[in-house]
Nucleic acid binder design. Structure first.
Lengths: 328, 328
DNA sequence: CTGAAAGCGCTTACAG
DNA sequence: CTGAAAGCGCTTACAG
């Protein structure tokens, strides 16, 4: 392998000079420059990043921790992150927890031992062990999807957007609205969205029927089963159901279709998540779009800011929009 | 930051001993072991990977090059890769070319300067510059999705599977079959699938109608536009169309639905790609499933094999299955 | 069973 | 404008 020493020898300069040339700092005479350029060209030399980072303590690598890669939401976020990182000459080290919480902590440590310059955490909880691990970290961490008090976070407006969607459903005339959520260790998805649901119904003096409130787990199957439970619960049927993710909604719709229950005439469905599946399913799904790709990009920008100086903790409530389609 | 020197001092041994302990090679007395363990525990020490790789020339990082992260096919492949890599204590450095070919070459170089131990390439072409870049690489590269002659490759059975699907369509009674493909710089998707289409029709003495053969670009829109062109081509309508990806098929179906053309009664649709979208769209799409996650896992295993000895070039024709649903 | 020494490929003051 | 020297945090023969 060609090293900086080889280049120095071939170009008849010292390796300090080559280094200066490579990093464009300090003076290098035009002549030296030319010789170095030529030699680098000929040899195809590329500096060793390992050696460089050992000296500079910078790797140009950002660690990304996410629960699961193979959901459309996740892949959009990653796409946004990647775009910004690439523009700023950072590389992305991707780790996935397969939805196991403790792994978030493990990866925070692991990524640091890999000397990443910063970490982007798509958090699914805000429990103490995680907060502690973040506190002990020596590199900047930016959270996406949860508000983690101690660090900069890009937060989805879960409460606000869900509230608006429920308002929309009520305006459309639905009075008996059900809800399929997820476990509450996840504050953003599990608690906030449910709270908005309950608050909005209450505000309109509509009944919150426990038989119509289910807890799934992000999967299509759990949406299917939750809807089944709602329909078979013994109480009257709701005339509309809100699902906290589009995956859950797709499962719920599947069950309704099997039962020949018309959407939206018999039961309307709305959800969070602007996947292509939600768009092309029939009827097309009315959803909250959290503009995930953009959110990923913003989180990446926030992290890069912290890397280049700013130490302030920023909280960004991300934008959203309602995509009104045919399921409500 | 705690380094191996700090640990050595605190545990009252030399750093060689600490290193031996960390890598479990060479002898370390029980007593020394205990002291070292304790100190590491207390300090939360993690060895610097940069320093380690500078010495050992191994980083434990695998570079992955893919055209686009936000397609379901890609994210499944990545998921499979990630699983195997994680099991083997490798990390994944992810780069995306945004479908720009030259970037594949750029990234092969870039990843090497990052001292990755190996590269997994989801190739979209097999042109000379790429082959050359691969030839010049100093680390093992495994290709997925294209047969790259000089290196181990996991290849989708494009010709075989497409042929079987066309056979299936013919058996179902369709005689006027159209085709929506992609550009031919991509041998696997652009050439092989088309060749299978033409050969199978020819074998059954069916006419290959040029007006029914379109070229899209992997996007839903291009599927939409291609189907539009087929319908408006002036010649008779086909009674079935095969699309080389499910995305393209979804666009094509969209157009047919807008025109009130019944699927599959008026025109049947089949495609390659087992996305959830293909599954839940109506009618559900009959597709070839290339088991992408498994393919990713196999490619990763192949690469790890090469990393640990075996230098033989292996070609693996991956498995596939037909998912017969309601669109044909 | 253990430690001293050399070296991996860089960068960075410093002296000239 | 340029080079010699030190050092980043590890591992690895080698000698004991």
């Amino acid at each position: 392998m060609t090293t900086i020493n080889d280049i120095a020898k071939l170009a008849e300069v010292s390796r300090s000079t080559v280094s200066r040339y490579l990093n464009s700092n300090g003076y290098v005479s035009e002549e030296a420059k030319k010789r170095i350029m030529k030699v680098i060209e000929e040899t195809g030399y590329m500096p060793s990043q390992s050696a460089k980072s050992l000296r500079t303590k910078k790797t140009g690598v950002i660690g990304v921790i996410l629960p699961k890669i193979s959901t459309e939401t996740a892949s959009r976020v990653v796409s946004g992150i990647n775009k910004v990182l690439q523009q700023n000459d950072y590389q992305m080290l991707l780790t996935t927890t397969s939805q196991e919480h403790k792994k978030e902590i493990e990866f925070i440590r692991l990524l640091q031992s890999r000397n990443v310059d910063g970490i982007l955490l798509l958090a699914t909880n805000t429990e103490k062990p995680l907060i502690d691990a973040i506190g002990n970290a020596t590199v900047p961490i930016v959270a996406l999807g949860q508000d983690i008090p101690t660090i900069s976070s890009v937060i989805y407006p879960d409460y606000l957007a869900t509230g608006e969607m429920i308002e929309y459903m009520i305006q459309k005339g639905y009075q008996h609205i059900g809800f399929i959520g997820v476990e509450e260790y996840d504050p953003a998805v599990g608690i906030e969205r449910k709270r908005a649901f309950v608050d909005t119904l209450t505000k309109h003096q509509l009944k919150v029927n426990k038989d119509w409130i289910m807890q799934g787990d992000f999967s299509i199957e759990s949406g299917y089963n939750s809807m089944k439970s709602i329909i078979n619960s013994g109480s009257d049927r709701p005339d509309a159901v809100f699902a906290v993710t589009d995956q859950i909604a797709v499962g719920a719709m599947q069950f309704l279709k099997e039962q020949q229950i018309q959407i939206p005439n018999d039961i309307a469905i709305a959800a969070t998540g602007a996947s292509r599946l939600a768009q092309y399913i029939e009827p097309s799904l009315t959803v909250i779009d959290f503009l995930n790709e953009e959110a990923g990009a913003i989180a990446a920008e926030l992290l890069i800011e912290e890397l280049t100086g700013t130490k302030a903790i920023k909280k960004i409530i991300h934008d959203y929009r309602l995509l009104v389609r045919n399921s409500v």
